[in-house]
């Protein structure tokens, strides 16, 4: 379970002080798919970075799978991120010089998994997103939707339960975006917890709940 309590994040000091998050609290249950919406600058990215253990809150607490993440050291937090969180980005964040299979292997390389085992897990992940036949393709030689599928395969290849997706359909057309959301739905059914940042209402509507963030606060939960 993901639990955030009275989370604050402040950048700068004095006159240049910016309160990106002003004490937000919410809970995401295991196997739940939640959308985070809000205007540009509302604090969505800041929240996602904190949930992804890539940034630390100024105040409040963030608990994931029973561990209070904000009390971990930087090194422990990095390891925690590696073992618990998978990312899906708007522009896919695939490396052009590697094949889709090698891209999907990346989190397993970070976990020091042996090559043969890595290949097997990565192939399984590609299979689960329908890309078995394109494993050896270069990212540039597949469509945007297929690139995002590969990125999702990479996010789940490490076996992490929390998937954080930042505008995952932002670079895709409507129908491809819908297919990607179907994929997220399938992942949810397999027990993954998914948090999706989006500004598209149609995408958010496909999630179990929507968190609206405005001026650093969760203003509405549906």
């Amino acid at each position: 379970m993901l639990k955030v309590e009275n989370l604050t994040k402040t950048y700068g000091k004095g006159d240049s002080r910016v309160d990106a998050l002003r004490g937000i609290s919410f809970t995401v249950n295991d196997g739940e798919m939640v959308a985070v919406m809000g205007r540009s600058g509302a604090g969505k990215s800041t929240l996602l970075n904190i949930l992804g253990c890539m940034d630390t809150p100024t105040g409040g607490s963030y608990t994931l799978d029973g561990i209070e993440v904000n009390k971990l050291s930087a090194k422990e937090r990095n390891r925690f991120r590696r073992d618990h969180v998978g990312f899906v980005f708007q522009n896919f964040a695939l490396m052009g010089q590697y094949s889709l299979l090698e891209n999907v292997e990346l989190p397993l390389v970070a976990k020091d998994v042996r090559k043969a085992e890595r290949r097997r897990i990565a192939m399984d992940a590609l299979k689960s997103v329908g890309l078995t036949g394109k494993a050896d393709r270069n990212p540039a030689r597949v469509s945007g939707g297929q690139q995002q599928r590969a990125a999702i395969a990479r996010a789940i290849a490490g076996g992490n339960n929390l998937i954080l997706a930042d505008e995952p359909t932002g670079a895709l057309d409507y129908s491809t975006g819908a297919e990607v959301m179907e994929l997220f739905r399938d992942l949810q059914k397999s027990g993954k917890t998914i948090v999706i940042v989006t500004h598209e209402k149609e995408i958010a509507d496909k999630c179990d709940r929507i968190l609206y963030i405005s001026d650093g606060k969760v203003s509405e939960t549906l």
Binding site: R82, D83, F87, P107, R154
Partner: peptide, 16 residues
Amino acid sequence: TYDYAVHYANGFQVSD
């Protein structure tokens, strides 16, 4: 840097 950022996002430690 893009590639390093991808590595970082996918669980590589800063020291790695």
